[in-house]
Design a protein around this nucleic acid. Structure first.
Lengths: 345, 345
DNA sequence: GTGAAAGCGCTAACAA
DNA sequence: TTGTTAGCGCTTTCAC
């Protein structure tokens, strides 16, 4: 007895052909209800399981979406993947995960793997260490639908879902200013990466709007880590005219900043305001609780899938205009950025 | 011009056959170096990309591992997936992710999808809401290698990687006792789930070892959430003879407990000791920092893959004995469980 | 070391 | 509505 039963086995049992069985199994319009029922019954009896590999080969569709993320260990991406998978699942797609570990080579290999696997679409959040975009061009050549999420690259003409980082940074900075802080510093990420640059510019523009001259001494170029928060504060506090608040590029950076401020017995908030970015779960529970900006991670995943799904549906037709979905950042103001003492509030 | 070039195209160009090209591309032993080089060169020129779908259909191997997790949004699973994917990738496998959302039906559907896709192996962390195991039996029938991780089920005779929850709970409880706490309470998860039951039993056994009689009033049956931590403390503090420490089934529960204790101005540690479970990242940063037990998530993923890989390699041969890899829990003692005041230690 | 030929399991054009 | 036939792209006997 063979372990796998095929449509031919069903056909044999019912004295019909594979074609008919296939039609019955696929709800083909031109099939009689009676045959369909017979086939379904026989299939169940024989414990038939459709071979999607064979079906993919023939139909040219795999029902698989390839997703490349920097790391599944990072909360943010886990959350986005959650959004993607839920939506994909609802639409009959499955997702193949590939981690780039922030390496350009892995990312490239992931794309190659997906292309070989003939996935129906690809979703990518770019590795930080990106310097060559040939692999994305390759994807376009194969006409495989692709979208970016969170970390995108404008010049590539690829659809994307991103958060309005500029606006988010603007909000965060303005919030500190409105709460009475006069010298707001910024701890940035690597500025050659779009999102970090956008946050920096948002910060600068908020200062500008409020008539505050941007002081380069109040910018600390970090690497998105707890320790860059620590180092930044260390440096800031030695300044002749130190800041009284900081907008950190990301929550863990803000955390490092808070730890160092506490070590120096600087009161948060009141003496010093802090706001982060990303709405990591811990922010709600530390003391003081951390103000931050939420990026709507799950929604980002859902929107990215929606975008991709549209591209898949449009395959073969005239190309659609490139579309970028911009998600609204959601401010989450907690204790760490509350009003400055002895000042107007 | 066709968009996809096949081995036949390469063969045509070189005046040879598909068989030869296939051999060259697959490093077949019986192929001359010269032909191989020619083929490789032509393949590169034509921009050939192997169709893994066709190759899978013919060879019966897909190079895909199906992974079912409750939710990618939960840190713990993201971290395990990270471990799995890294290892899988190194061994030439890709992973297909399916979220059960703790639902038995989704889990079942995921298994079915994987079986249809002819994945080379399956890894599952069971949904909480499990009541029927027929889908796992089905997997065994198809001879598809399968392993459990973290949430396993003994009676199924399926390989698994788990943490020694009993030991971990024992350590946590004993640690509180050794630090001078006399009445240690436990906030549990649903006790019909293996891991939560094991933690409860570990707690009980630690009490026993130290000659402390288990008091059912000091057990709060929660649902693994912040609010069950809050509720538990609320109840505990109303007791005529309240506890002076608590071992919480999981870090967020511990967090809820700490919040409620603070609200009642109970000093942590000193008056009251707290220890959690899981080593969530926030525990390091709250005040006081949270003692907990680390479950070696990434390693769990790696070990699970290793186990599965062995099964895949053994396919067709005599079945191996069922194997359970038990990971050592790693205690992470921080401030929240430090020594009790006015007592020895 | 290479070629010829068959076929993995399914679907889709065309015919009946 | 059903059957016939071909073939998706690859691998793998078997022969030479």
């Amino acid at each position: 007895m063979s372990l796998t039963v095929t449509i031919a086995d069903i056909a044999r049992k019912l004295n019909t052909t594979s074609a008919t069985v296939s039609r019955a199994l696929n709800d083909h319009p031109a099939i009689s209800v009676k045959t369909k029922q017979k086939v379904l019954k026989a299939a169940a009896q024989l414990n038939y399981r459709r071979n999607t590999v064979a079906s993919s080969l023939r139909s040219g569709q795999t029902g698989i979406i390839g997703v490349i993320i920097p790391s599944a260990e990072i909360n943010f991406f886990g959350s986005v993947v959650h959004g993607i998978e839920s939506m994909a699942n609802q639409h009959g797609y499955n997702i193949l995960i590939y981690q780039s570990n922030e390496s350009w080579e892995h990312e490239q290999k992931g794309i190659e793997t997906f292309l070989n696997a003939r996935v129906d679409g690809i979703m990518v959040s770019m590795a930080k260490e990106a310097n060559d975009y040939a692999h994305f061009i390759n994807v376009k050549k194969t006409k495989t639908p692709i979208v970016f999420f969170d970390r995108a690259h404008d010049a590539l003409n690829i659809d994307a879902v991103v958060v309005d980082d500029h606006k988010a940074a603007f909000m965060a900075t303005e919030h500190l200013i409105n709460n009475g802080y006069k010298r707001v510093a910024h701890i940035s990420g690597p500025l050659h990466i779009n999102i970090f640059k956008a946050r920096f510019l948002g910060y600068k523009d908020a200062l500008k709007k409020h008539g505050i001259v941007y002081d380069p001494k109040l910018l600390f170029k970090g690497d998105v880590s707890i320790s860059s928060g620590v180092q930044a504060i260390e440096k800031f506090l030695q300044l002749p005219n130190p800041p009284d608040a900081v907008f950190a590029v990301e929550d863990f950076t803000a955390l490092g900043a808070m730890q160092e401020l506490k070590r120096h017995h600087v009161l948060i908030p009141g003496e010093f305001g802090v706001i982060g970015f990303a709405n990591e779960r811990f922010g709600e529970y530390i003391t003081p609780s951390l103000s931050t900006i939420d990026q709507q991670t799950v929604k980002m995943g859902e929107e990215a899938f929606t975008l991709l799904y549209k591209l898949i549906g449009n395959k073969g037709k005239k190309e659609l205009a490139v579309q970028t979905t911009v998600l609204e950042p959601i401010p989450v103001y907690r204790e760490s950025s509350a009003g400055k003492k002895n000042k107007k509030q």
